[in-house]
Design a protein around this nucleic acid. Structure first.
Lengths: 182, 182
DNA sequence: AACGATGGAGAACGGTCGTTCTCAACCTTA
DNA sequence: TAAGGTTGAGAACGACCGTTCTCCATCGTT
């Protein structure tokens, strides 16, 4: 196992455990057990827990935003595609809400700076992505952001596709970017 | 200091500290210091931390939902009054998002049952309150819920009145419950 | 004034966490 | 094969947490 694979295994274990159980509830020894990477090597790659948490959030951000961007790129109804993508996400069996929202709620405004930066970057990227979909109306981007965040929050406590469908219908009524009538 | 005052002081300290810094980040000794109630008495009133957390969330739910209900009752535009009330909340200097969302994100689905019940009850009450505002359309209540949760989530990371104003405008366009055109 | 019950202040206990250290096994190079 | 650095497995360390215990002051009753 070279260093790159160890790093991947550590981030895989971190993502699974931190997302499922929260950050403070998962100790470094559980990361070691879940990854198979010895503690000493773990600390050589990530010199403290905060570095691991930050790396976990950053990789998740790249994947999450990348997957969403891929889903909307070239879609006939890009705005609708956002909510279709959310619907698939909400239906995953291990869906537990937005990892960044959870991290922020857990660590609070007084948490480690690196973590808070990662959360802010993620939300800024989401808003930027939405703004690209309605380039002539920043206000609409803010409205879409409210719908996306609202759907995620509602789905967190009652998982399933309905919040995404309902938010999609609202977005279509608000933007007119719906299926052609007929 | 009789028992009722001790209880109130404990819940006041718990609310201030848990809401500001998170639940796991605040130890029982900090509750003792913040309340002035000795540890022994604390444990006589709340036999474990979980009981204190549950009581904190339940009292906060009663106050939060009660205040919102009061604000919308008899308002000329009840739906708009919801978002006006949110706007005032978001502008409070120590606003840090939804305490229940934060608690859920922190403790996860595997947390203590009492805490999760309190979170679920709070969200059910919010939805029931919104449903009363649009008694002929449960679907609209779900839409309002998405707008309210979305505004709260957006405001959590960038506090201020704007998310509430924008959500209010969306609600008016969706329900027609807006100010009479002039 | 003497007594027992009550309550407060804080030490103590067992457990867990993040992090570091020990030490033996193992490669590499000669 | 021998030496030397590197690694892995896990014990160890110091700090902190939730909870309980000790000990003394206080107070109402006689």
């Amino acid at each position: 196992m070279d260093e790159e694979e160890a790093r991947t295994r550590l981030l895989d274990a971190a993502e699974e455990l931190f997302y499922a159980h929260g950050i403070q509830a998962v100790g470094m020894d559980r990361i070691r057990a879940g990854s198979g990477v010895p503690l000493k090597r773990l600390y050589r790659i990530f010199p403290a827990k905060e570095a691991l948490v930050t790396a976990y959030l950053e990789r998740r951000d790249r994947r999450w935003t990348g997957s969403l961007r891929e889903a909307v790129t070239g879609a006939p109804e890009p705005v609708g595609a956002v909510f279709d993508w959310l619907e698939r996400w909400f239906s995953e069996p291990d869906f537990r809400g937005c990892a960044f929202q959870n991290a922020y709620g857990e660590l609070g405004a007084g948490g480690p700076a690196g973590v808070l930066d990662a959360v802010r970057r993620h939300k800024a990227e989401l808003r930027a992505l939405l703004a690209e979909l309605v380039p002539d109306s920043p206000a609409t981007a803010d409205e879409l952001l409210i719908l996306v965040e609202g759907a995620i929050t509602v789905a967190t406590l009652s998982p399933g596709p309905e919040p995404a469908r309902r938010a999609r219908a609202m977005a279509e009524r608000l933007t007119g970017d719906g299926p052609p009538p007929g």
